[in-house]
Design a protein around this nucleic acid. Sequence first.
DNA 1: CCCCAACCGTA
DNA 2: GTACGGTTGGGGG
Length: 997
Amino acid sequence: MKNGDHLFLVDGSGFIFRAFHAIPPLNRKSDGLPVNAVSGFCNMLWKLLKDARNTDVGVTPTHFAVIFDYSSKTFRNALYDQYKANRTAPPEDLIPQFGLIRHATRAFNLPCIEKEGYEADDLIATYARLAEAAGADVTIVSSDKDLMQLVTSKVSMYDSMKDKQIAIPEVIEKWGVTPDKMIDLQAMTGDSTDNVPGIPGIGPKTAAQLLEEYGDLDTLLARAEEIKQQKRRENIIANRAQALLSRELVTLKTDTPLDVPLDDLVLEAQDGPKLIAFLKAMEFTTLTRRVAEACDCDASAIDAAVVPVDWGAEAHGPDLDKGEAGGASPMSGSLAESAAEAAETLLPSASANGHEPATLAKSRAALFSGKPIDHSSYVTIRDLATLDRWIADARETGLVAFDTETTSLDAMQAELCGFSLAIADNATDPTGIAIRAAYVPLLHKAGAGDLLGGGLVDGQIPMRDALVRLKDLLEDPAILKVAQNLKYDYLVMKRHGITVQSFDDTMLMSYALDAGAGTHGMDALSERWLGHKPIAYKDVAGSGKGAQTFDMVDIDRATAYAAEDADVTLRLWHVLKPRLPAERMTAVYERLERPLVPVLAHMEERGITIDRQILARLSGDLAQGAAALEDEIYELAGERFTIGSPKQLGDILFGKMGLPGGSKTKTGQWSTSAQVLEDLAAQGIPLPRKIVDWRQLTKLKSTYTDALPGFVHPDTRRVHTSYALAATTTGRLSSSDPNLQNIPVRTAEGRKIRTAFIASPGHKLVSADYSQIELRVLAHVADIPQLKQAFADGVDIHAMTASEMFGVPVKDMPAEVRRRAKAINFGIIYGISAFGLANQLSIERSEAGDYIKRYFERFPGIRDYMDSTKAFARGNGYVETIFGRRAHYPEIKSSNPSVRAFNERAAINAPIQGSAADIIRRAMVKMEPALAESGLSAVRMLLQVHDELIFEVEDGDVERAIPVIVGVMENASMPAVSMKVPLKVDARAALNWDEAH
DNA sequence: CCCCAACCGTA
DNA sequence: GTACGGTTGGGGG
C-alpha cells in the first residue's frame, strides 16, 4: 500500500444490525428466508464499488475489506467478565443473515475478514493505522461511535445509510471533542449496550466539558480534587478504577495479529457471473439487473448459486464453535457474536409471523404427510445423455437426493450395482415442491445359476462413464447431496475414488431431532413423516435362503425400489430440514452429527490389523479348557446336558440337585446368572463355579477368538467395524460387525484377546482415554464444590467420596471402603436406586438406602441436579447435554411406577453419558485437522470406545503425536463449553492394544 | 427362518 | 442403578 491508495473498511457486523433495522423485514425470499439485511448490504456494497465517485465520499477505493466479529468472547472478556454481558439475542429473522452476508461478501469478490478473540473494530483499527502509516487514505464504512477514535486527517468514516461522511469536524460537532479524545470520553460516559461501566453521572456533555477543561482523563483523575461540583468530584474519585478499566475496554487494539496482510486487501475485479449467481439465489431482481447491465452479462444465462436454505446453523441451539466442522455445508461459516449470544439465552420458539422456522416446519410436514408416491413416474436411466441431463438439473437446483444400490450391507465389501437420484422441480408444482426420481442400473446381471454366472444386462451405462459423472456430481460443493445414512454410500463411493462433499443425512437429522423417540431408519421415517410404507427390500430381493443380491434383481423392480428410496429421502429432507432451526437443533446436527460421517467412514475404511495366529492359539486353549470343564461338570451333575442352556442348567441345579434357587427371571425360570452361581459357589458348592468358568471360556471363544478372524477383509487383511451414529438415545456411538467396543479387558484371560489387535510393521498403537470423564461431567453439570476441587487437585475421586461419606482419611483407606464409594459414584451416574446399589454391593436395601441418604447430605447439589433433571424431563419429554443434544423419554410420565422410575434414571444418566459422548465426538471431528496442522497427517485414528480413541502411528511420529492427541481431547469442549473441571487424558503407545491401554 | 429371552462382553 | 451388541438356546411357524 502506498501514498494515494485508498482503503475501504466495511464494518460488516455493525452493518448487519443497521440494515436489518432500517429495511422492513418484508424483504424475503420466496421460501420465507428473510434477506432484508442481505439486501441492504448488497445494495450498499454495489453502490460503494460502482458509484463511489457520485457519493459524498468522492473517492474510489484501491483496497477493500469487509470485517466481521468472530465470536462473543474476546480479550476484553478477560479484562472484564461483564463486557457485553447484557446483550440480548438478535431477532430470529436476523440470524440466518449472518452467514448469508459473509456469502455475499465473497460473491462480491471482496476479502471477508474476522479473527478469533477480537472484535471487528480491533481489526478495523489495526488495518486503518497500518494503511495510514503507509500513506494511504482510509474510509471506514460505519457510523459506530466506537470507531470515531480512529478518525484523523487521513482516516474518515462514512455512514452509508445516511450517505454522510464523518471526518474530524463531524466528530467534534456530535461529541464536542476531537476524535483523539473519544477514548477518554467513552471511558467516562461508559456504554450501556456494551456494558462498559464508565463514571456514573457523567454523560457526553459533561465528559466533553471536563475534557475541554483538563485535557485528558489522566489529568482529570490526577486533579479531580479541584472539581467544584461536590457530587461530580466524589463520583469521579470513587470510580477512578472503573474509568481506567472502561478506557481499556473502549480502546481499540491497533496491533491485532492479522491473518490477511494489508496489501492483500487490494480490490479485485468484479466477477459479474459469480455475483449475479448469488443475487439470483437471493432473488434480488433489481440489483441483478443492474449488475448484469454494468458487467454486460446476460443474467438469464446464469444459474442461481446454491445457497441452501439454512436458517442459521450455529445460532439455533447452543454455540458449538465457529468455522468449518466437517465442511459439509457451504453455508456453515463462522459466527457473528450476537448469534452466539442468541444461543446462550435459548429462547423458546419465536412468535409466529407466518415465516418463522416453526411455521415452515409445520407446513412442510403437512405438505408431505400423505402426499401420494407415484411409482409409475420413476424412470430408468439407460444412456449417458439422459444421465447428463439429470445431473445438469441437479446442478440447476443445487439439491439432489442420492442413494446407492449394492450387493452387500457391508460397505467395505459391497459392489456398486446402480444408484438413484431424486430432484425437486420447484417450478412445476403449485406447492413448490415436485419430486421426480430415477434409477441408474450399472451392473445388473441376468441368467443366474448357469456356469457363466449370468451376463451383464443390456441397456446399462458403462461403470467407468457413470463414475466420471458421479464424481462431478458428488464432489461438487455447490450441489447439496441428500442421503439416508450417508456413511454407507460415502464409503462405497470412496472405494471408487469419489469423496462426497456437501451433504445432508436425513437419518442424522432425525437423530438430532428425535433421539429416543423412535428409530431413524428410512422405512420408519417414511411411515412417520410421509405416511407411506416403502417397498420392502425383501420383496424385491427375497430373504433368507431365497435371497439374491441386488445385481440379480430385474431392472424394472430395482427401479421402483431404488428410485423410491431417493424420492422418500428427498421428501424426508424437506420435512426434517426446517425442523432443525425451528427446534434449535441445527448446531447439534451440524457440529456433532454431520461432520462425523467422513471421520467415521475413514476410521472404518482404515480398519485394524489382528493377528489371527494369536486368536487361533487362544481358541485352542479355550476349547481345551472348556472341554476339561465339561467333563468335570457332567461328573458333578451326574449326567450330560447342554450346559449353555439356562433352562436345562436350572433344572439340574434347582431341580435335580435341589439347590436353593436365588432369583427368578421374568419368565418364571430360575435365574442362573453369574451372580446366582457365585452365591452358590460361596456356599462351598463346586458345580456352579465350574459353570461360571465354562461360560467365560465359551463366551470368549464364540464371541471373540472364533468370530473375529471371520471379519478379516479379504483384500485389506484388516478388520473393519461399522459404527452406528444414530443408534443410541444418549449420543454414544455403537459398533458392530464386529463390535469392537466390547473387547474384553477386565479379566486376564479376556485381556489376551487384546494382544491380537496389533500395529502394522513400523507402527505403534496409541490408546488415549479420558480419565473419569462422566464423573467430571457430573461435577460440571451439578456444580459440586467438593468434586470440582478434587478434580482440580487431581486427587483420587473415589477415595475423596469415601472420606466425605464415612469420615475415613484418604491415607491408608481400606480398599473395601473405597470400593463402596466407587460403587456409589457409579450409581449416581446411573440414576441411583437403593435396589440397584444393594445389588451391586451385595448389601441390604436398607443399608444401601442409608448410603444414598448420607451421600445426598454430603453432596446436596447432586440431589438438586437429579430433582431438576427429572422435573425437566417430565416437563419437556427430553433432557439435554451440555452441548444441547436432546435425549427423549416419551414414557417419563408413565403411570406404571417401575417404567416411570426407569425413565427417570435414564433421564438422569443421559445428560452425563451424552455430554461425555459429545465431548469425544468433538475431539474426533477436530482430530484430523489438528494432526494435519502438526505435520502428523500420517497418524491414523482407527477406533473409538466411548471414552477412548485408538490410533496407529508410525514409530517416528509417536512422541510428537501423543501431546497433540491429548491436547485435542482435553480441550474438546472448547470453545463451546468451558468446563468447570479439567478433562484428563492418559495416552500410551505399544505394539498391541492390551499394552497400549 | 424369525424372534425372544438369557446371558455377558464393554464404557 | 445407565448405554450398547453378539451368541446361544429354544419356541413358534
